[in-house]
Simulated assay, not measured.
Amino acid sequence: MFGRRSGINSKYDDPSSHDGKYPPDWDARRKAVYERDNYTCQECGRRSGPHAGDGGATLHAHHLISLRDGGWHHLANLVTVCQYCHDGIHGHPTGSQYDEGEHNALRVLRVVGRVALRILRRVIR
Rank of each mutant, 00 (worst) to 15 (best):
M1L: 13
M1I: 11
M1K: 14
M1C: 12
M1E: 15
F2E: 15
G3W: 03
S6C: 04
G7M: 10
I8W: 03
N9V: 13
N9R: 13
N9E: 15
N9L: 15
N9I: 09
S10R: 08
S10G: 04
S10C: 04
K11W: 04
Y12P: 01
D14W: 00
P15I: 05
P15E: 04
S16N: 11
S16H: 05
S17L: 01
S17F: 00
H18Q: 07
H18S: 07
K21D: 03
Y22I: 00
Y22V: 05
Y22W: 06
P23S: 11
P23R: 07
P23M: 06
P23Y: 03
D25G: 04
D27L: 12
D27S: 15
A28K: 07
A28I: 01
R30T: 03
K31N: 13
K31T: 09
A32S: 09
V33H: 00
V33K: 05
V33M: 06
Y34W: 05
Y34N: 00
E35D: 14
E35S: 10
R36M: 05
D37P: 01
N38P: 02
Y39V: 05
Y39N: 10
T40S: 07
C41R: 12
G45D: 02
R46V: 09
R47D: 04
R47V: 12
S48Y: 09
P50A: 11
H51A: 01
A52Q: 04
G53F: 09
G53V: 07
G53N: 09
G53I: 06
G55Y: 06
G55Q: 10
G56Y: 04
G56T: 02
G56F: 03
A57H: 02
A57Q: 02
T58S: 14
T58Y: 14
L59V: 07
H60R: 05
H60P: 06
A61K: 00
H63W: 08
L64R: 15
L64M: 13
I65D: 07
I65V: 15
I65R: 15
S66I: 02
L67V: 11
L67N: 00
G70A: 06
G70Y: 07
G71N: 06
H73N: 12
L75W: 01
L75N: 04
L78S: 09
T80I: 04
T80G: 02
Q83K: 11
Y84S: 14
Y84Q: 15
Y84C: 09
Y84A: 13
Y84V: 13
C85E: 11
C85Q: 09
C85K: 07
C85N: 10
D87E: 01
G88K: 03
H90I: 04
G91W: 06
G91E: 08
H92C: 08
H92G: 02
P93N: 06
P93F: 00
P93K: 04
G95I: 05
S96Q: 11
S96V: 11
S96R: 12
D99K: 09
G101S: 11
H103W: 10
N104S: 11
A105K: 14
R107S: 11
R110V: 00
V111Y: 05
V111R: 14
V112L: 10
R114K: 12
A116F: 00
A116C: 05
L117R: 12
L117K: 14
L117H: 07
L120N: 10
L120Y: 11
R121C: 12
R121K: 14
R122H: 10
R122T: 09
I124Y: 15
R125E: 14
R125S: 14
R125P: 01
R125M: 10
R125C: 07
